[in-house]
């Protein structure tokens, strides 16, 4: 074994991970805990950016505050780490100022749906041409595991030691009701499906939303007796893949099942197209 490991060690020094060209490698290893799924979701996002063939010079990544919010800092793209909850308004501004830019929002559930909830529903309503990737780990991981808008009923967190008395948001259903035009949900276990779905979301014109379920072993898992591998096992056993499922039936429940898939796709004029058509038809004629 020693000779093999030596040979491996020599090989490793030269070895370069296929995603290293999209990573700020001087910042790797990242801050995410052992067993945290954000790294997988982030790798899938980078792979999808590569696969989609987008011009990397015209692609920007925006994220808010939280564990997933660190994503923007690790991507070797134009990226911006905004204030808490304001990733979508910042991205909207970026897109309006430079409509040629492909804007990816990579953030967490607390950032996008609690403090940033209003921004999300209005960007979806306007069909702003953004790709929103939400890593859902069911709690506020970075601040110590407090209850969030996505924590399941009766789950234990720092602030709900006897169980969460409230009901969580169903994110894809919320996105559907708000008017998003591409909606999907995957877990980090479903790597290839997730990359395909993210690629489709990146190439979709209009507001695309992908929820990625990820374990949070240190804060959520520890209080709910779930080791990281047990969470993956749960995803493996309980997930039901139903593409084009009725948005009312996409449950996220350890007992009823975790429904995954590309749920909805629609083509509708995006915010900028609609604005130009309505408010400045002359400009459209000039530019065409």
């Amino acid at each position: 074994m020693t000779t093999k490991s030596n040979a491996q060690a020599i090989g490793e020094k030269q070895a370069q991970h296929p995603l290293d060209d999209l990573l700020r490698t001087d910042r790797i290893p990242h801050i995410w805990c052992p067993g945290c799924g954000i790294g997988t979701a982030f790798a899938a996002t980078l792979t999808a950016i590569k696969d989609s063939g987008l011009d990397l010079g015209h692609t920007a990544m925006v994220s808010g505050i939280g564990c997933s919010g660190r994503g923007a800092g690790y991507a070797k793209l134009d990226s911006y780490h905004t204030t808490h909850g304001r990733a979508i308004p910042f991205a909207t501004g970026l897109k309006l100022a430079n409509p040629k830019l492909n804007v990816v929002v990579f953030s967490g559930d607390g950032d996008l749906f609690a403090i940033g909830g209003n921004h999300f529903i209005h960007a979806a309503r306007r069909n702003m041409d953004l790709t929103v990737i939400c890593v859902n780990n069911l709690n506020y991981g970075m601040t110590g595991g407090q209850v969030a808008a996505t924590t399941p009923h009766l789950a234990k967190t720092t602030t709900t030691p006897v169980g969460n008395p409230e009901s969580p948001f169903n994110l894809p259903l919320l996105a559907y009701a708000s008017g998003a035009t591409f909606i999907a949900r995957w877990t980090i276990m479903h790597g290839r499906d997730m990359v395909e779905s993210l690629t489709e979301a990146l190439l979709h014109r209009g507001f695309s939303f992908v929820e990625i379920l990820s374990p949070c072993p240190i804060n959520y898992g520890r209080r709910n007796k779930e080791k990281p591998l047990e969470t993956l096992k749960l995803y493996e056993e309980k997930s039901i893949i139903k593409n084009n499922a009725n948005p009312l039936e996409i449950t996220l429940d350890a007992e009823k099942g975790i429904v995954l898939g590309n749920f909805y796709k629609e083509s509708r004029p995006s915010c900028i197209e609609s604005y130009d058509r309505t408010c400045r038809p002359d400009f459209l004629e000039q530019s065409s």
Binding site: K4, H17, L23, I28, H30, G39, A43, G191
Partner: peptide, 28 residues
């Protein structure tokens, strides 16, 4: 940490699943 090692390297079928699942960009 204890990193993994290839116990049976000749068995690998190049499916890339470790690469997809690894959160740390540490295996391919």
């Amino acid at each position: 940490y204890h990193p993994p090692y290839a116990r049976r390297p000749e068995e690998c079928v190049n499916c890339h699943y470790c690469e997809i699942l690894c959160p740390e960009f540490a295996i391919f």
